[in-house]
Write a protein that binds this DNA or RNA. Structure first.
Lengths: 230, 230
DNA sequence: TAGTGGTCTAGACCACCAC
DNA sequence: TGGTGGTCTAGACCACTAT
C-alpha cells in the first residue's frame, strides 16, 4: 500500500469537491455509503472526512450530514519561532543587545491590557536583535512581576528575554497581532532606518491560567515580510 | 462522560508536560503503557498523542518513541476570509468600487513571479472595498488570462474579483505574505490617508496544478490589525 | 424519532528504525 | 531484529438534531 487508505480516500473526496462533482452547498454521501464505495471501514472514511472538515473544506453535523462549504474557510498557518532561530535559519549570525531594563509601575495602558492591579510592578526590557550585525528586530517587552517575581533579577545579556521566558514559564493562552507602524526616533535609531519608515509590527500577550505573563512589541527591520504557503 | 476520552487523555498529558512531569527532551511512556494507565484502548491514546504531535508539543518516531520537544513549535493560524465577509462580520455595510480594469501585457516582474511566457496577457483589476462607506482595503489584482481566458469579459461591479475567482476556479496552492508599506499617492487617495502613512499589506499568489491563476496586493486602511489567539 | 456523525474497543498487521 | 508508532477493521454505543 503506497499511501495510507485514509489519505487516498481523503484525496479522492477532495478532488471530487474541487472538480465540482460535489458542489458547494451540497451534501456528500454519508460515511457508511462512502465506506462501501471505497471498500474500507467506516472509521477510515471518518478520519478522511474529519480532516477535510478541519481544513475547512466541508462542514459536518450529526443527522444533517456532511456539506461542501460554499466559500471554503482558508487558513494560513505561521510558525512563531524564537528570533534567534529565525535569524540562524537564514544562515546569519545572531546576537542581541539589551538596551534597557528597569522595574516600573505598570502604566495604565498596560494595566488595562494585562488586567493588573493599580500600582502593580512590571519589568520593562528593551533589546535589539541582530543578524550578521544588522538590526533585525527591536523587542520592547513588559513582564508582570506579580506572576514572575524572579524576572527582576534575571540577566538577559546571555539569553534574551524571549528565550528566558520560554524556559521560565509555560503559557496557556497567547494572542498575537500584526500591523504596520511608522518608525519613531527611537525605532529609527535602533533599526537603522529613517523616521517615518513603515515597519512591520508584531504584538503578543501571553497568559498562564488567567494571569498575564508578558506583553511584547516586536518591530522588524524595514522590508520585513512574513510568508507562508497554504 | 463529559468529555471524549481522548480529549481527557490529551489534557492530562499536556498538563504533565507543561507542569514538567515529563521534561523537554524526555521520552514519555509508550502507547500501550499509557492505555493501561488510563484504562482505555491504545487507539484512544494514539489519537490524543497524535494531536499533541500535530500541535507541535511532542515528536513521535517509530521505535524511538514519543519525545517532549524542547522548544515547542508555536503556530498561529489565521483565517483568510473574503473581504466582504470580513467587513460584514464587523457589522458594517459592504460595498466595493472597481476603479480600473484593463488587459495588459504582463510586466516583467509579474512574469517572473507567475512564471508567464513573454508577451503573455494579464487582466489588471483594481478596486476599493468599503465598510460603512469608509475605505477598508485597496485591491490590486492581476489575473493570468492564459489560465482564465473568460476573466477578460467578467463584470466585477456586482461581484468583486476575489469572490468571482473563488467561484470560477479552485486553487491547489497559495502563498501569502504580510508586510508594511508606505502609502503612495494612489493609495493615499483611495484609502483616504496621507502619503507616507504606514499601511498593512497582504500579497497572495495562487496556483492551480502548476499554472498561476492570480496575484493580488491587498493594502489595508491605516491602523488595520490582524489578530489571532493560539 | 430516526439518521448521521462522534467515539471507543480489542485485536490485528505493518513500517520504520534504533539498537 | 524487536519495540514502537501507524493504520485498519468490525462492531458497538452514544450524542446531537433535522424532520
Amino acid at each position: 500500500m503506497l499511501k495510507a487508505a485514509f489519505r487516498e480516500v481523503k484525496e479522492i473526496i477532495r478532488d471530487r469537491i474541487v472538480e465540482g462533482v460535489w458542489k458547494p452547498g451540497e451534501l456528500i454521501p454519508n460515511e457508511i455509503d462512502l465506506a462501501v464505495e471505497f471498500g474500507c471501514a467506516r472509521a477510515t472514511v471518518n478520519r478522511a472526512v474529519r480532516e477535510l472538515a478541519e481544513e475547512g473544506l466541508v462542514e459536518r453535523r450529526r443527522k444533517a450530514g456532511t456539506r461542501v462549504l460554499a466559500s471554503p474557510v482558508r487558513r494560513a498557518q505561521f510558525e512563531i519561532p524564537i528570533v534567534r532561530k529565525e535569524i540562524e535559519s537564514q544562515g546569519q549570525i545572531y546576537r542581541h543587545a539589551v538596551v534597557g531594563q528597569k522595574v516600573n509601575k505598570a502604566p495604565d495602558w498596560l494595566r488595562a491590557r494585562m488586567n493588573l492591579d493599580i500600582g502593580a510592578l512590571a519589568l520593562h526590557v528593551t533589546c535589539v536583535h541582530y543578524g550578521d550585525n544588522n538590526p533585525y528586530q527591536f523587542e520592547d517587552r513588559w513582564i508582570n512581576l506579580a506572576a514572575l517575581p524572579h524576572a527582576a533579577d534575571a540577566d538577559f545579556t546571555k539569553t534574551g528575554p524571549n528565550e528566558w521566558l520560554i524556559e521560565a514559564v509555560p503559557y496557556s493562552d497567547a494572542e498575537i497581532s500584526f500591523s504596520a507602524t511608522a518608525a519613531d526616533k527611537e525605532l529609527a535609531s535602533y533599526l537603522d532606518c529613517a523616521v517615518g519608515d513603515p515597519l512591520f509590527l508584531a504584538e503578543r500577550s501571553t497568559w498562564w491560567r488567567g494571569d498575564a505573563i508578558t506583553y511584547v512589541r516586536m518591530t522588524f527591520q524595514r522590508g520585513h515580510r512574513m510568508t507562508t504557503k497554504y
